[in-house]
Simulated scan of single mutants.
Amino acid sequence: MLSATKLTKSFSDVHAVRTVSFTLEPGHIMALVGASGSGKSTLLNLLAGLADPDTGDVRLNGERIPGPSDVLVPGHPDIRLVHQEYQLMPNVTIRENIDYALRFFEKNYREFRVNELIKLCRLTDVQDRIPRHVSGGEKQRTAIARAIADKPAVLLLDEPFSHLDLPNRLIIRDLLFDLVRHENTSCLFVTHDATDALSIADTLGILRSGKLIQLAPPVDVYRRPATAYAARMTGVVNIIKAKHLSLFGLTEPENSDELICLRPEQLKLDEAGVKGTVQAVYFKGSHSEIDVTFSRYVSFRLLTTRDDVRINQQVGVSLTETALWRLKS
């Protein structure tokens, strides 16, 4: 079990990480989502023992993870961090890159383990190529294979999906599932895009300016975000003042300036609904997102599977559910 307790880290007057605490259970996937500059990479370095916290500590199974000021070689043998740049050896093959991580093991086991990892990470067809002759997704999978070669307890990933096209993103997503299932490895990754985090994480955290503002199962963070920032970081959302609920015939709450979170799927096209004008249509394949304006101050984005909606068309909109979520800020 990996635990962080009140971690803080500052660089001059920049507070990169501020009193962050959480626990990652064995065999679980945790995702931390935040905008650029929210402290994601700094936090990973603290967790991996590659940077010293100003206060707080990191523990693995109850034992404190030492930082660079405590050891000659920074890092921990049971924690692996995969950087965005992959850091592969450029002039040896994919297979040799993975094999190098097992160089202190007996030869027969090393060969068995490399074969196992190549199959697990879908690298069979490119194992004899050097890194510059493979795709970004294949480099990413090689870096992961090398990181888990000696079966660490914790795998940390820095923006694992940021440079990948959709097919490779899906392969990496499936790979993380397989790692947890077959290797019993705990996995924590940071990202600025919650799309993949929502689908594979057991626990989802929202980072803002170094502070962990929400930590819960993905469905709870999506449906009941703590703040407007958390709502926007986890997907498309309509954030309106409570006074505009009267548009749908709902009773206006006492605090008319209170913020309300409405996801696009909570609205639907309905001929009997409130009339508005379509301002934009974004085709997404399985559905379209459309922006509908009702007044100078009120505009909503909603989902539809209809393919006959056009810009400037008059449409009716109604709420599919009245369970509205009120935001703190």
Rank of each mutant, 00 (worst) to 15 (best):
residue 137 G to W: 07
residue 138 E to H: 08
residue 138 E to G: 06
residue 138 E to N: 07
residue 142 T to E: 06
residue 143 A to D: 03
residue 143 A to H: 06
residue 144 I to S: 00
residue 145 A to K: 03
residue 147 A to D: 00
residue 151 K to W: 09
residue 152 P to G: 01
residue 152 P to R: 05
residue 153 A to Y: 04
residue 157 L to D: 05
residue 157 L to A: 01
residue 162 S to L: 06
residue 162 S to R: 08
residue 164 L to T: 02
residue 164 L to W: 08
residue 166 L to G: 02
residue 166 L to A: 07
residue 168 N to T: 02
residue 171 I to E: 12
residue 179 L to I: 01
residue 181 R to H: 11
residue 182 H to S: 14
residue 184 N to Q: 15
residue 185 T to P: 05
residue 185 T to F: 02
residue 190 V to P: 15
residue 191 T to H: 13
residue 192 H to N: 08
residue 194 A to F: 11
residue 195 T to E: 14
residue 197 A to F: 06
residue 197 A to R: 07
residue 200 I to D: 10
residue 202 D to K: 14
residue 202 D to E: 12
residue 204 L to F: 09
residue 205 G to F: 08
residue 208 R to N: 14
residue 210 G to N: 12
residue 212 L to P: 10
residue 213 I to G: 14
residue 213 I to A: 15
residue 215 L to P: 08
residue 219 V to P: 13
residue 220 D to W: 08
residue 223 R to H: 14
residue 223 R to I: 03
residue 225 P to M: 04
residue 226 A to G: 13
residue 226 A to D: 09
residue 227 T to D: 06
residue 228 A to D: 09
residue 229 Y to R: 04
residue 229 Y to G: 01
residue 230 A to Q: 03
residue 232 R to K: 12
residue 234 T to S: 07
residue 235 G to Q: 07
residue 237 V to S: 13
